[in-house]
Computed example of a mutant assay.
Amino acid sequence: MRAVIVREFGGPEALEIAEVPSPEPGPGQVRIRVTAAALNPVDEQTRAGALAGLHGPLPHVGIGWDVAGVIDGIGEGVTGFSPGDPVIGLRDRLTEPLGSHAEQVVLDASAVAPSTLDPVEGATLPLNALTAVQALDALDLRTGQTVLVTGAAGGLGGYLVELATLRGLRVAALAGGGDEELVRGLGAEFFVPRGENLAAAVRRRLPGGVDGVVDAAVLGTEALDAVRNEGTFVSVLGDGPRGLRGITVRSVWIRADGRALTALARLAALGRLTQRVAGTYPLAEAEKAHRRLREGGLRGRLVLVP
């Protein structure tokens, strides 16, 4: 089968479409024939070597976390799935040599969820929506409290706005000036245009500051300053800033969760979560897709289709 790998870290030209043996599912695992696989910023970081210390001694590194497809192999002890079932899933084990940007991928059954979504749209859900859920869980706010979402127009930020709103939180959204209609449509009550002094702009709208922030744009201390004393700051990349003024700082590293993903897929099927596809590329054009991602300006995810 074909898979996107890197043998030496670098730019998009480092990507290789390699012929590799089809992976076999072990105990507790399923094999998925890939229909669609989203391209995320973490895939660009993987290709460039930013996560090199997490992969271990591998002959090559596979690319891709998100997947939508059909189960075509079942390992020992797996129940609840059968060959032919349409599913979505998340590959979060970086020590495995192949990712989801391939014609087949093996995942733990616990990382997979049944799905009725269009596969291209469904492939944009797992990584970003699960990160949003886990970040909001870490925030631990009550109905009616306020949260600032930075990078609110992005793939992760959009799910954060929608899911926070579904939890009854009041959302302040930081995004580019042209994205106000988009983020308000996702449920944001307050809009803060990028370029203003963030803390001052938030505190004008919400005196004293927000109860918490999920920092999808990785602004660090700039976003921390918009939080009230003894509030909560959640980082989705790295440890986050120092917890000044009694602010609790928590970090989230994504983990696969098939049960939570099942609930997210149901919300998406009901139209409560918005999957945004910026474009599709054949698997063979992975390098071109990475170059387009690097250009920026996308509203939604690029998706590779084997």
Score class of each variant (00 low, 15 high):
D239H: 09
R255D: 05
L206T: 10
D215V: 00
V213I: 08
T232V: 15
G240F: 06
G231C: 04
E222W: 01
G212V: 11
G246W: 05
S251W: 01
R245Q: 13
D225R: 15
F233M: 06
V210A: 04
G208A: 07
L244Y: 11
T232I: 12
I247D: 01
A217E: 08
D215E: 06
G209T: 13
G258A: 03
G258Q: 00
L237N: 10
S251V: 00
G208I: 10
G246Y: 11
G258T: 08
V213C: 14
G231D: 05
V214D: 00
P207L: 02
A226W: 07
G212N: 09
A216K: 04
V218T: 08
G240V: 06
V214F: 04
R245H: 14
L244I: 14
V218D: 10
G208K: 01
N229C: 09
G258N: 00
G258E: 05
R228S: 11
R228T: 12
R242W: 02
R255N: 05
A256W: 00
E222L: 12
R228Y: 02
D225P: 00
V213W: 07
G240N: 05
E230K: 13
S235M: 01
V249F: 06
D225G: 12
R242K: 14
F233G: 11
G209S: 03
A216L: 02
A226E: 01
G208C: 04
V249L: 01
R245I: 07
D215P: 02
G258C: 00
G258V: 05
A216Q: 11
G258Y: 06
R250P: 03
G209A: 02
G231N: 12
G258H: 01
T248K: 14
D211Y: 08
V236R: 08
S251T: 12
L224K: 10
D211W: 08
W253Q: 14
D211N: 09
N229F: 08
F233Y: 15
D257I: 03
S251A: 15
V249W: 04
R228P: 08
D257S: 10
W253M: 11
G220F: 06
R250Q: 12
R242A: 14
R255Y: 00
P241T: 06
V214L: 06
I247F: 06
T221C: 00
L237G: 00
T232W: 06
R242F: 13
G208R: 13
T248H: 10
S235V: 04
E230L: 06
S251D: 09
D211L: 04
L219E: 10
V213E: 07
G208Y: 01
T248R: 15
V249S: 09
L219S: 00
D215I: 02
L244W: 10
I254C: 01
R242N: 07
V214R: 10
V210I: 07
